[in-house]
Simulated assay, not measured.
Amino acid sequence: MTASVKLERVLYIEDEPDIRLVAEIALHQVGGLNVITCSSGEEGLSLINDFMPQLIILDVMMPGMDGPQILCKLRDMPEFKATPVVFITAKVQADEVEQFKRLGAADVISKPFNPMTLADDVRAIWAACDE
């Protein structure tokens, strides 16, 4: 499904402006990915059909619509039903990670993330989705 296709387009939904900026630099300038960052689930869902991301990164805790709620909405959209979703959060206890995976997340990246390896981490998750 994924690894045979090169990962190029990533949507990152994060409410914290500083983290959004660092992630955009990490994914685009360091990692060479085409990335759109959004400050809310509503914004991300409004842009998603025009951008058609191959992978979506969601902050877990956000005001309004949180990451798990966004994931549920994505799974109701036929064109994004199988799109890999990665949660990014400081909540990375084993039971929490398992809960996120039960919800349908491909994986979980812990905050704070390493900007120099974030794109590689995302590519590794992308590749694992095909196994």
Rank of each mutant, 00 (worst) to 15 (best):
Q29E: 15
T117I: 09
I13N: 00
M52N: 13
I48P: 12
G44P: 10
A119G: 05
V108K: 03
K111R: 15
M77T: 10
G31H: 03
G67V: 07
S46W: 03
E96S: 09
P68A: 10
M52D: 09
I56L: 09
L47P: 00
V10N: 03
V85H: 05
C72V: 13
D66C: 13
K111F: 06
L47M: 12
E96M: 05
R9Q: 13
C129F: 02
S40L: 02
Q69C: 09
S4Q: 09
A128N: 12
G41F: 06
T83W: 04
M1A: 14
D76E: 15
M52V: 11
M116C: 05
I25A: 10
I19F: 01
L11V: 02
D121N: 13
F80C: 10
I56D: 09
H28N: 14
M52Y: 04
D95F: 10
D121K: 11
T37R: 00
D59R: 06
I88M: 15
Q69D: 14
V122I: 15
S46I: 01
A119R: 07
I19L: 14
D50K: 13
I25N: 02
V85S: 06
P17L: 08
C129K: 08
A23W: 01
I36V: 14
T37G: 01
A106D: 07
M62D: 11
F100G: 03
N114Q: 10
P112R: 08
D66E: 10
Q54Y: 07
Q54T: 05
I70P: 02
Y12G: 00
E14M: 01
M62P: 11
E131T: 01
V85K: 08
G104E: 10
E16R: 04
